[in-house]
Amino acid sequence: MCAAQIRCDLVRRRGLHRLADLAPLARTRPALGEQRCPPAPPLTSITRRRFRSHREFIVVVERVVFHVVVSFSRPAGLIDVCTKVSISPPGEKSRVRRGNVPGVTNYRKRPLDVSTDIAVLTLIRDELCAVVIVRDKAPFKGLYALPGGFVHDDEDLPEAALRELAEETNLALRPDDITQVAAYGNPDRDPRKEKRVITISYVALVPDLPPTAAGTDARDAAVIPVAQLLADSPALAFDHRQLLQDAVELVRVLIEETPAATKFCQPEFTLAELRAVYEAVWSSSVHAGNFRHRVLQTPGFVESTGDKRLPAGGIGRQAELYRRGPAQQLHPAIRRPGTYFRT
């Protein structure tokens, strides 16, 4: 049932002031064979939503839900559209539920919970790898997943990520070792329909990864090449493939714009070892001469120690050793091949 241009009292900047004029509409029932509801207060509840051009009101009057639209261009007191959208059965408390009002989805139907997931990346034989666990509980029991879990009421998000990592993999990191990647809140990302789960993802770069050990709800913990995980071989639970892909992309940008690549190296390293880190993270080859020139021309990136040593394996000429410099940002950035002019 729609009624256009219904006169109603309005107060400027406060929206609807008196809704008694909607009560007659609430008492008009469609011919659906329903019994009249017991008398109820004229106004049960009201929810306002302000937009640039209009306001929307979700009004419950005598167990009937109205969707009211008021345009700012209209004279004060004139309603554009007033639509009866729902009738509550007798004996049920009047309230707006998700789905009762077409186009209105800001009413939570499921409880909301927050979790954290962390992608721990390391280099093994010049190949980028990630720490994963084997889930021991449903859903996705037996599948690989990133370490993570729900946030306790008395802890911060980084604390929750580090706690879950220690419980599930026996890896102890510091808050300075992790970087927040993104937040993920797709309503269907968790198949457990009793609650909606929003997760905050983190990434950590660990050069010398200690042995991992499964714990709590993890059946096992393993270190698997990132290329295999992103190729769904093996498959990852939930939307963790997207989480891992975004974490790797963030690390690729970090090593372009910051000295983060030196975290994968020993305190003293050669430029060839540093170049191997870039090639492993970028998954592409880098010209040795161009890389050396760009690194040495970036102020504060690396500093020479004055020492030399043989390459790994003891074969070849002695290479000069470097350490990380004082720079926190690289200018100009060390762009990956094919993106030199990316802003």
Rank of each mutant, 00 (worst) to 15 (best):
P39L: 13
G149Q: 05
V81Y: 03
I87D: 15
E127P: 05
V69D: 01
V61P: 00
P139F: 06
S53R: 12
F51C: 03
P42C: 06
V134K: 11
S53N: 14
Y144D: 13
D136E: 14
R110M: 10
P147N: 08
R97Y: 08
L123S: 11
R49F: 05
R95E: 13
P39K: 02
E127A: 11
I118T: 08
T105W: 01
E127H: 10
V134C: 12
D80A: 13
F57I: 02
P147T: 03
R55M: 12
T122Q: 07
V69E: 04
D126M: 05
G77E: 07
S115A: 15
F66K: 06
S71Q: 15
V101N: 00
A130L: 03
G103S: 09
V64R: 04
P89T: 07
R55Y: 01
L123G: 09
V104Q: 08
F140P: 04
F66A: 07
L121F: 07
I87L: 15
F57Y: 15
L121I: 07
I133R: 02
R52D: 12
C82E: 01
V61H: 01
R52H: 12
L123K: 06
S115I: 02
T105K: 00
L112K: 06
T83S: 10
S88F: 12
E56Q: 12
A40I: 02
R125Q: 13
G77H: 03
A138W: 07
G149I: 05
H67T: 06
T44E: 15
K84D: 02
T44R: 05
G148N: 09
V101S: 01
E56T: 09
S88E: 13
H54G: 01
K84E: 10
P89N: 05
R97N: 09
E127F: 04
V65M: 01
R135T: 05
